[in-house]
Design a protein around this nucleic acid. Sequence first.
DNA 1: GTAGGGTTAG
Length: 715
Amino acid sequence: MRAQTTSSRFRALLNLKATSMSVNINNNVLLLQPFSFEDTIQYLKNAADTKNLIFGKIIHAHLITSSQLNEQSNNVVLMNSLINFYSKCGEIRVAQNLFDEMPQRNIVSWSSLMMGFLQTGGGFQVLKLFRNMGLVDGIRPNEYILSTALSACKGMLFEGQQCHCLGLKSGLVFYQYVKNALVRMYSMCSDLGGAMGVLYSIPGSDIVTYNSIISGLLDHGYMNEALGVLNRIVAEYKAWDEVTYINIFALCARIKDANMGMQVHNHLLKNSGEFGFYVTSSLMDMYGKCGKISYARKVFDSLNTRNVGSWTTIMAAYLQNDCFEETLSLFLDMELEDVEPNDYTFAVVLNASASLSALGYGTSLHAYTEKLGFKGHVIVGNALINMYSKAGFVGHANKVFTEMINRDIISWNSIISAYCHHGLGNEALSLFNDMLAAKIKPNNITFVGVLSACGHLGQVQEGFYYLQQLMNQMGIEPGLEHYTCIVGLLSKAGLLLEAENFIRFTLVNWDVVAWRTLLNACHVHKNYDLGKQIANIVLQMYPDDVGTYTLLSNMHAKAKRWDGVANIRKLMRERNIKKEPGLSWTEIRNNTCVFVSDDKSHPELKQIHEKVKDLLNKITLLGYVPDIATVFHDVEAEQKEEYLSFHSEKLAIAYALLKTPPDAPIRVIKNLRMCSDCHSAIKLISKVTNRLIIVRDVNRFHSFRDGNCSCQDYW
DNA sequence: GTAGGGTTAG
C-alpha cells in the first residue's frame, strides 16, 4: 500500500505514464528500474526548462543509485544534461563540480557550463572558459559557444570585438544566432555604430535581429535611427512577433507619438489573434506615456485576464499623468481581486503617495512591503527613500537608506537629492564622499545633487571644481541642469553679475528656470534695479511666465514703486496671465485636508480664523510685522493685512495645531512658492508653539523649528 | 545534450 502511494506520487511528480516504471522499497532506499536513456535525457531537459531543482535532483539521485553514472561509456551526453540542468537552476557550483569530474568533455560540456555562468552574471568566467576550452581540451568554438561568449561581453567592448574577429575568421558570423549575438553585444557595450555595422554588413536578418537593434537603439536614445529601422521592418518584414510590437510601442512611448502608437495598435489587432501580458502591458504603457490615459484604461478594461504586471502598468500610467489618487484607488481594486503586488507595484504606489505627500498611506505601504518580504528589493527601497523624503522626513529616508541590503546608483542619488531638497548640503556632500569611497560611479543626476549642495553651503569654488574638473575626470558631460545649478550657486552667494554673465556667456539652450533663479536672487539680495532689468529680459523671452510677473511686482513693491506694481497688474490683465490660486494641504489622522487661500467654505472656519488671529497676536509680541508690501492685490492697507492672514498655509497650520497632539510635527504641502510673509510668520509660530513645522513648497522643504528655518531664509 | 530579442520602477 505504502509502495503504491509513493509510486503514484512519484509518477505524478515525474509526470510519467503509469506503466513506465516500477518502484521497490528496500531498506528505505527507493530503487527504480533504470529509465531508458532517452527518457532520462528528456526528464533532465524538462527539469532544466522549468527550473525544477527537486525534480532534476531526483533523477540525478536515481542515476547514482542505479549505477548508471558509473559506467564510463556514453556518459558525456548524460553529464552534459546534468550540467545544463544545474546551470539553468542557478546551481553553478554543482555544475562546475560535475564538469571538473568528467574524464572526457566535449564542446557541449563547455557550452552548458558557460551558460550557467552567463545566467548568474559571471561574464568574466564565461570568457575564461572560452579561452581555456582551447587551451585545456583543444576545442575550437562553434556557433553555440561564440554566441554565448558574445553575450558575456556586456560592457567589455574590447573582448567583444575580439570575439567578433574570431567569428569573422572562422566564418561563424554567418550563423543567424551569432549575428544576432553580435548586434546585442555591441548594444550592450553602447556601441550602436558597431551594432548597425553588423546589421548591414553581415547578410541575413531575421525578426530577432531587427528586434535587437531597435531595442538597443531605444536604450541609448537613438530615436531617429530606431524609426529608420522601423521603416525597414515595415517594408521588409510581415511576420512581426510579440517582441516587435513591444519594442515599437516602447519607441512610440519614448517619442510620445500617440498617432503612430494607434497605427501599430491597429496593425496588432489585424495581424494577431491573441497576445500576452507583455504586449498588452507595453500597449497600455505606450498610451500612458503619450498622455492618452483613457485609451490605456480602455485596453485595461478590455483584458480578459490581468496579472500583476497589467495592474501595475495601468497604475503607472495614471501616476505618469499625475492622477495620484486614481493610482492608489486602483491598488485597492487590485487587492480586492486578490492579485498580490510585487516590487514594481510598490514602487508605483509609493511614488503616488510621495507625490501626494501622503505619509499615512506611505507608512502603511512600508509595513506592507516588509510583510510581503520586499525588504531587500532595491526599487522598493528607492521608492521608500523618495516617499519619506517628499513627505518631509529626510531622517526616515536616511534610515531606509542605511538599512538597505542592496543599493544602486539611484539609491545614492535619491538620498543625496533628498538632503538637498531639505537644504542639508553637508549631509549631501558627505554621502557623496561615502559613495565615492564605496566605489560607486556617480552619474549626471548625482552631480545635480552635488552642485546644489554646494549652492546651499555657499561653496562657489568647490562647485566650479566639481563642474569643471571632477565631472570631466569621470567622463560626465555637464548639461543644462548642471549649468542651472551653477547659476543658483552664484546667485545664492550674491554674485549676481557673475551669474548673469555666466548665463550670457555659456553656450547652452537656457530655459526659464535659470533666469528665474537669478531673478529670485535679485529679489532676495534686494538688488531691485538689476532684478527689474533681468525680469524685463525674461518677459521678452517668456511672456507667459507667471513667476516672473510675481517677482517683478514684489520688487516694485519693495522699492515702493506703486506705479510699477500697477503696470504689472495691467500687463497681466492684457496678456490674460492668471496666478494659480494658493493651495495647501495637511494630513490629519490619514485624512487629507485642503485649504485654499482666503477660504470661506470650511465648516470650522470660525475656529480656524480665531486660531490664526491668536497666533498672529502671539508672534507680534515677538516682533512679527505683516509684510504687506508683497500682497498682490489692489486693496487698502488694512485689507492687505487680512489677505495675508488667510494665506492657505497659515490656515492649514492653524487647523493642524487645533487637531493634533501638542508634540506632533506639522506637515503642510503647498502648490506655490511660499511668500516671505508666511515664511517669517511660520518661523515665529514654530517658536511660540514649540512645534516642528515642515512645509513643502513647489521647490523645496522648509523645516521650521524654534524660530528658524532650514532654508536659512534663502529660497 | 548546448544559443537570441521583451512589460510595470526609482
